[in-house]
């Protein structure tokens, strides 16, 4: 009984500290495809979100939208759940995907998650120009 109370109190304190210090939870790992750029690009983008202290509470890598608390079971390369501002959904271009298929995918996801921003990333350095 006392263990549960102490555990609960410690958990709440840790979560509170994490929130106060702007901690961010990373879920999953970047998708492995036949293209090295894809993985690198997903990791760079996730890292960039993680560096914005306090702005995002969770960052999902190749995780389902519902795993990070959004609507839908589809997977995205990077999903950032915002404490402040809009949630961000990132899809990195694969060789077999076209602009049309990417647009279709992002369209459906952000329509079911109102107030969200989605981005298709087509080249590595593009991350640094993304606000």
């Amino acid at each position: 009984m006392s263990g549960a109370i102490i555990g609960g109190a410690t958990g709440a304190l840790t979560a509170g500290l994490n929130y106060a210090l702007g901690g961010v939870k990373i879920i999953g790992s970047a998708q492995k495809t036949g293209n090295l750029f894809h993985r690198f690009s997903s990791n760079v983008q996730a890292g960039k979100f993680a560096m914005q202290i306090g702005r995002y509470s969770e960052i999902g890598l190749n995780s389902k939208l519902k795993t990070v608390g959004l609507n839908g079971a589809k997977r995205l390369d990077v999903t950032a759940v915002a404490r402040i501002g809009k949630n961000k959904l990132i899809e990195v271009v694969s060789k077999t995907q076209t602009v049309l298929s990417q647009q279709n995918k992002i369209n459906a996801m952000i329509a079911s998650n109102p107030g969200t921003t989605g981005r298709v990333v087509s080249w590595a350095l593009q991350h640094w120009f993304y606000f």
Binding site: V93, Q103, P114, G115, G118, R119, V120
Partner: peptide
């Protein structure tokens, strides 16, 4: 080629 989409609070994209 790399583009950005946004939905408003009504889900309009």
């Amino acid at each position: 080629r790399g583009f950005e989409m946004q939905s408003d609070l009504n889900g309009q994209v």
